[in-house]
Each structure stands twice: as structure tokens, then as C-alpha cells.
Design a protein around this nucleic acid. Structure first.
Lengths: 343, 343
DNA sequence: CTGAAAGCGCTTACAG
DNA sequence: CTGAAAGCGCTTACAG
């Protein structure tokens, strides 16, 4: 309680043993007499001794810390991933240091720090990072163990859903209901940062249309941000499309809910006037009655953390890509188009 | 790029100066000849030298990292706070290490580590931590600079909204519309963990009712979790209340949206059949048309981080409590009761 | 403006 | 089972 921290020296003196023995006793190493260990532990408790973090790191070369670089911590997806990651890591005794990597500039600075990160974390989780060539080179050179989430990223281990087939299944659901003109909401990040996940989803959208002999019409792309506000603004633009589409595929649930909210505000009825399908299965999607593709986000975080832990424990662990399953959840926001013959 | 990290020694040798000079040159300290500095920087760049994190920490006593303990990273509130915190800290050159403190057990373990945290972070942000006496004592004894978010927590600096008056204003809105029987959703955490923030909100609810001469009826408390699922389940129980209330005050927007979703699913019309008001102004509340109390969560995170930075820079900085303003946002989920004389 | 040296507080072979 | 000693890689007075 008094001013100074107790050091391992203090514990050693008061226990009548060397600092080496204190170190072994406190960290549960073998080759310490039971009686000695008990005495050391008692003294350490009394003194409130806890090892100096930096001194341990420096001497042992381990930090018991994992870094997570992710875009925005206030989006639903990132929060869920983080929750899964945190649970697995804290159970394993690791701390979690987070890095916002939402802009190209921040990703650059992050990658540039990689040599120093090597002595700051035992491993790194990259969420939708999509490094460019230079960034990837630095990351590789750092020698840090890395697991990527949301994309395949050789030569590292990775974990992701199949965005192409998942998007194709979503659009296939609409096509199956009879829709032929289907708008695509949320492509802004494809244009601005070239997000691979979103690009793949658009590819799946196009493939599904091609599968029934329809060419994708660029006039149906609504280039709005992937957010609630983006979806709301997107709906206003959607209304100005000539020969209005009967359905909308949104690249995220937040976008979809923003669009639905705006639609209802304007007096449109969903799905009677327009069908909407999302992508994620956000916590609120059920309340919105939103049909969507459910991806197990939290489990993705957990599994990625486990992969990283395995790689830390065994540097020779294989660096494979793992695909995560997704499933269609049909709710009330989709139905056959009003003009459709069948109904 | 080859196997080994470069050390300050390597840079010193190749620059023909001492390690002390390298240290000064690279960290922008004064008293280094321009020409020397330039040479050192060039060598450091060529070698890809970056200081060993733990060695710097140990020698300097600073970690340039801040810890944040918060309940659940996948709830909207925490994510927003974190985003605000992260922005301010990363701009100031600090890293952010997060600790989930969602259970009493985790909070205990966290507080017990405080001596070692003292050498791991330069400061701590506690989000809705509500330490018990023992935990608070440990936190204090650690000597770590701390700023509390969401509650007053002497002797530390803190930042919070006034939950009592804010809740009273929300309920006052309903009362002003003519409602007299108003249910309260989301009290589970009051019973289980005794959350001070939620307890205050309930107090505000009761005070607002008392203000118009109404005694709070415990039969109108719906003891459900503060979540989307909690609100949905709560609505089912709400329907079984005899002499059904005409309005609902939910202790969070997520609870409110869960209730609204369930209500609509069951064919109820909001607000015609029942008015609902929330608390937060969640990103999706506008899309839901939810009337609520808007608290500037992201700014709370930013301001708390600034307070902490100030306290790190100047240990003598005052430890005051700061109150954050909240405002009523009226949307479509509230209206006068159907039975009300005025309308 | 620069260097030699002490020191930060641990962990880890190596002897015994 | 235990201790002495080296070493982890920096930063910071202190001299000069």
C-alpha cells in the first residue's frame, strides 16, 4: 500500500532465497521444494508483489499479448469478432491490444511498425486488412505470427466465409422468388478501397444473375457507404432508378436496415413494394424481419484466436485457409414481386 | 529482412557513435549535431531498426499504452466508446489494450492485477466498472492514473450522464403525452449486478411518476436483460400484465428495438397500441423510428481519453466529475394513449 | 555535442 | 533443489 512497488529482490530477501528461486517458485516451475515455494508465495502475497511487465517481457521474450488490427470498432461486425477473440485469449491468459486500421494511412503506419510490434505482441490478428504488396512484405519480414480474418492471405493462416457463393445464394433466393431487376446497395468501399470481401460479394451477385441469363446492369448499383445512414441515403437514390427494381441486395445488414427504415418512413411497405435481403444476420435483423445470410461472426473470432494460439505454441503449425459456413435465414422482408405471374 | 532484428548496438556501430547518441538522435532529443542525427537516422532506416518495446518500457518507465476495461465489446455502447477513445489515443501516439470486465469474477481478477498493470499501462479507463470496496482499494493502491466512464468514482476523474434526470425526462415525455401506466423494461442487471447507472435510471422513472402523483407499481417492472433478445422476451411478458400499460420505457435502445420488433411480429402497431421510448440513440434507432434520449457516446469516449491524457501529462491535474448532456429525440414510437381524452 | 556506465527488473542456462 | 551471473536492449543522469 505504501509508495514503492515490491520487486523480486524484496521477495528474495524476505524469503531468504535468491531471486532465481523466487522466479521459479512464483511461476510454478519445477525443481522447487514445496516448503520453499509456499514460503515464497506467502511473502509475495504479503508484499503484494507482481512482476514488472517490461522486465518479464525483456527477459523472457514473451509478451502474453496479442494484437488485433481491425477497421472501426463501432461497427457491429468488428465488435462481435472482438468479443469472440477476447474470450478465447483471456481464457488462455493473453492480453489484447487493438489497432484501428480503418484508413489506408493507418494501415500503412501499422505495417511500418511491424518490427517493433514483433517485440510488443506474440501474434497478430488481421481483420479485413487487405494489405497491399508493400504492407504485406513488411508484415512478412517482421516474423510475427499472423492469422487473417475475412480473407485468404498467404503465407498466413486465414479464416473467411466464401463471399462469392454466399452472395450468389442471397441473390439466388430473390431470383427464385421471381425477381429479375435487383439493385445492389453498398458498393462504395469497392470503389474507394477495393475491399476484396465486398468485391467478391458483387461478383456473386453478378454470377447469380448470369446463372439465369441476366447481365448485371451497372445502373442498379447504389454506390453508398456500408452503414445504416448509407442504406437510408441509398434508398432515396434507388427511388430515382427508371423502371424501378423489385428487390434489393444489400452488402450488409446495417445497410439493409437503413434502407428499410427509410422506406417505411416514406410510406413504402416491405416486402410488398420491394423485397430486401441483407448480409450478416445482425442482432437486430430478427427484429426488423430482415431476410439475410447468417455468418457466425463471433465464432469466427474465436476460431481465429485459437488458430493464432496454436501457431504461437507451435511455430510449425500449418498455415491453411479455413472456410466458414453461412446460411440463408428467411424472414419477412422478401416475397415474390408484385408483378410476378406466380405469387 | 534477414533473420535477426537490428539492435541499437548495430545502429551505433554502423554509425560510428555510441548507443546513447543513437537513442537521443532517434527520439528527437536535443543536443545532437544535425549531421550526426541525419547519419544515425539513415543507418537506422537501412537496418530497419525499431526499438525493442520491452527494453524501452523498462528503461523509461513509460509504456505509451492505455488500458480500457469495459463490459462486453459487442454491445453498441462499448463499441462507440472504444471508437472515440481509440481515435484520441492513437492521435497522441498511444496504444490501447482492452480488458473485458463483464462478470464480477473478471472484474475481480482485473483489480487483483493492478500492481502489475501499473507497469503495463500508463493509465486506465474504466467503463461502467462499478468496483466494490475491495476492488476500489486495489485500484487506488496501484497508483495508476484512472478515469471512470459512466459513473462518478472518487477519488478518480470521471465522466457520465445524469441518469436520474435523463430517465425522468424520458418518462416525463410519456407522462406529458397523457400516459399514466408506464412499464419499465430491462431491470435484470439492477437485480443481478446492481448496476448503478441502471438503478439511477429506474430512480428517475419513479421520480417522474411521483412528480405527477403516481406511485411506481412494481408489477410494471419487466425484469429482462438489456438486449434485443431481452426486449423481445420482455414484450411477451408485458402482454400478460393485467390492465395493460399504454407505454413502455426501455432502459436501452436495444431493448426497445427488441420489444418493437416482437410487437410488430405479433401484429401490434407502435405507437397506436403502445408507445415505446428508449435510452441511448443507437445507430438504428432512427430507422426504427424510436423516440429516445440521445447521449453522445463517442464524444464521451473522446473526452475521457483526453482527461486521461491530461492526467498522465500532469499528475497534479484535478480529479473532477464531469456531467455530459443528453437530449430527447422524438420520433414515431410515441404518441398520446388511445384512451386519453386529449389527442 | 558525445560517450562510458549504471540501472531498469526480470529469466535462464550453468554449476553445484 | 538452489544460487551466482550473464544477459535481455534500451534510457538517463553524469562527465567531459
Amino acid at each position: 500500500m505504501s509508495g514503492q512497488r515490491a520487486t523480486i529482490q524484496d521477495v528474495a530477501h524476505q524469503s531468504g532465497v535468491s531471486v532465481a528461486t523466487v522466479s521459479r517458485a512464483l511461476r510454478g516451475k519445477e525443481n522447487v521444494a514445496d516448503e520453499t515455494r509456499a514460503r515464497v508465495i506467502a511473502v509475495a502475497d504479503r508484499l503484494g508483489y507482481q512482476p514488472h511487465t517490461a522486465a518479464s517481457w525483456l527477459a523472457s521474450g514473451k509478451t502474453m499479448t496479442v494484437g488485433v488490427a481491425a477497421p472501426y470498432f463501432d461497427v457491429w461486425y468488428t465488435g462481435r469478432v472482438l468479443a469472440g477473440v477476447e474470450q478465447v485469449l483471456s481464457d488462455a491468459g493473453y492480453d489484447l491490444t487493438v489497432y484501428a486500421a480503418d484508413t489506408p494511412d493507418k494501415r500503412d503506419r501499422f505495417a511500418a511498425r511491424s518490427t517493433s510490434l514483433q517485440t510488443r505482441v506474440d501474434g497478430l490478428l488481421l481483420v479485413d486488412f487487405s494489405p497491399d504488396t508493400g504492407q504485406l512484405a513488411r508484415l512478412e519480414a517482421s516474423g510475427i505470427r499472423i492469422v487473417a480474418i475475412g480473407e485468404r492471405l498467404e503465407p498466413f493462416a486465414s479464416l473467411a466465409i466464401d463471399n462469392i457463393s454466399t452472395a450468389a445464394e442471397a441473390v439466388g433466393h430473390l431470383v427464385g422468388l421471381g425477381h429479375r431487376r435487383i439493385a445492389l446497395f453498398g458498393t462504395e468501399d469497392i470503389r474507394t478501397i477495393g475491399s476484396p470481401a465486398l468485391t467478391d460479394r458483387r461478383t456473386g451477385y453478378r454470377e447469380a444473375l448470369l446463372g439465369v441469363g441476366l447481365a448485371a446492369d451497372p445502373g442498379l448499383d447504389i454506390d453508398c457507404p456500408l452503414s445504416v445512414a448509407g442504406g437510408a441515403a441509398g434508398f432515396d437514390r434507388f427511388l430515382r432508378i427508371p423502371d424501378r427494381p423489385t428487390a434489393i441486395f444489400c452488402l450488409s445488414d446495417e445497410t439493409a436496415m437503413g434502407a428499410m427504415g427509410r422506406a417505411r418512413e416514406l410510406g413504402f411497405s416491405i416486402p410488398a413494394d420491394v423485397s430486401i435481403i441483407g448480409f450478416d444476420d445482425h442482432d437486430l435483423s430478427e427484429s426488423f424481419g430482415l431476410t439475410t445470410m447468417c455468418q457466425p461472426v463471433r465464432q469466427v473470432g474465436e476460431r481465429a484466436a485459437e488458430l493464432l494460439l496454436a501457431s504461437i505454441a507451435d511455430p510449425a503449425a500449418p498455415c491453411e485457409h479455413h472456410t466458414v459456413g453461412v446460411e440463408l435465414v428467411v424472414r419477412r422482408s422478401t416475397c415474390p414481386p408484385a408483378t410476378s405471374a406466380e405469387a
